[in-house]
């Protein structure tokens, strides 16, 4: 099947200081590369999870795809059409077909608009305002499972979970082929997280929308993604089918990330692999393999040679960047046992 979205060698750069200051302080390279050579594709109706610690560049990837931040290098193709370098007007038709929901559920809704106006924004922006706004609003609210009388509310009168649903409804308004969801469960209680994830799963089953889910919460990815990519310092270190990565991570960072999970069970045996220290600053990118400063399996070569992408022998869709990838046996021995079932009192 052909790719709906294909991103190749994407690089996004931020300035760290003004040109004058850089000149004054003698800084030759006053930039950070927040995204650095990222490539992936999403097929029609597929769900890809993008996972990584905060600051790893996940949101920046999403913003570059949506055209909110021009990349310095690389290509972003939607159904074969190159999107980088397009003007706002040229990009507009594609923004009907791919939409994004943002991290802050309430803060991403224009505060002085009612839910009804918020939901008709996409129609107005794309010049489709002759439709029946009332009926559209009702259809969208029903689709995300909100009562239709919510149309009169303002964003601050919504709870986090409700605001998130409004955000999703707005993203669905023009029947897109791809939704990019940036941290869809951030700031929500566990009970509400489930609701939002179920909503995404249902939309995908019913409408066949492709979804790119960005999150730092691995529990989110496990249930609704087909494939997942793990990001570290602006690069993908591993990408592959979700179940396979959970079962047999090949990159030590993935393994550590998977094990850095608390268990809702006081007796859980936690085979935790501690990652030393914190994510290095983008301004001081380590040489060689960028994870070598925190890796427990570090060897001499890791600090000098950048690892090429290798492909898993048993699955061509599973690839990773590591000189000494974990063997499936090591990875599997770290599997945690399932949690104790909740005792049944009633």
């Amino acid at each position: 099947m052909s790719a709906l979205l294909r991103v190749q060698d994407l690089c996004v750069r931020f300035r760290t200081m003004g040109p004058l200051k850089a000149l004054a302080t003698g800084t030759k390279h006053p930039f950070v590369d927040a995204v650095c050579g990222v490539s992936f594709e999403i097929r029609k109706g597929e769900t890809l999870g993008l996972v990584g610690e905060s600051g790893s560049g996940k949101s920046t990837v999403a913003r570059a795809i949506m055209g909110l931040r021009p990349p310095v290098r690389g290509s972003i193709r939607f159904e074969g059409q190159e999107l980088t370098g397009l003007t706002v007007a040229e990009r507009k038709p594609y923004l009907r077909r791919m939409t994004m929901t943002f991290q802050d559920p309430i803060g991403s809704l224009s505060p002085r608009l009612t839910v009804r106006s918020l939901l008709s924004e996409p129609f107005r922006i794309h010049g489709l305002s002759n439709r029946d706004a009332g009926a559209e609003t009702e259809r969208l609210l029903r689709m995300v499972g909100l009562p239709t009388d919510f149309a009169r509310r303002y964003p601050h009168q919504l709870s986090g979970g409700q605001a998130r649903r409004v955000g999703v409804a707005r993203a669905l308004a023009l029947n897109p082929d791809l939704i990019i969801a940036d941290e869809p469960t951030a700031g929500l209680d566990v009970s509400v997280q489930g609701e939002v994830l179920n909503l995404f799963a249902r939309l995908q089953d019913e409408l066949g929308i492709a979804i790119l889910i960005i999150t730092h919460n691995l529990n989110v990815v496990r249930h609704i993604t087909d494939r997942m990519a793990i990001m570290y310092l602006g690069r993908f270190v591993e990408i592959g089918p979700t179940e396979q990565i959970f079962d047999q991570p090949r990159h030590p960072y993935t393994q550590a990330l998977l094990s850095a999970n608390t268990e809702p069970d006081p007796d859980a045996v936690l085979n935790r692999i501690e990652i030393k220290g914190e994510v290095p600053s983008l301004m001081r990118r380590p040489s060689g393999c960028e994870f070598h400063t925190r890796c427990r399996y570090v060897q001499k070569i890791c600090s000098s040679v950048f690892p090429e992408t290798s492909v898993s022998p048993n699955d061509a869709k599973h690839s990773f960047k590591c000189h000494f990838p974990l063997e499936p046996e090591t990875a599997r021995s770290l599997q945690q046992r399932p949690p104790v079932p909740i005792g049944s009192r009633f």
């Binding site: 949506m66 909110l68 009907r96 991290q103 803060g107 991403s108 224009s110 002085r112 922006i125 955000g167």
Partner: peptide, 24 residues
């Protein structure tokens, strides 16, 4: 974020200024 959200839907600068910035 809500300005970014509007931009991601394809809203032009004039519209963003008039509808989403000015009233605030």
């Amino acid at each position: 974020e809500y300005i970014a959200a509007e931009q991601s839907m394809g809203a032009g600068t004039t519209r963003i200024l008039a509808v989403h910035v000015l009233p605030n």
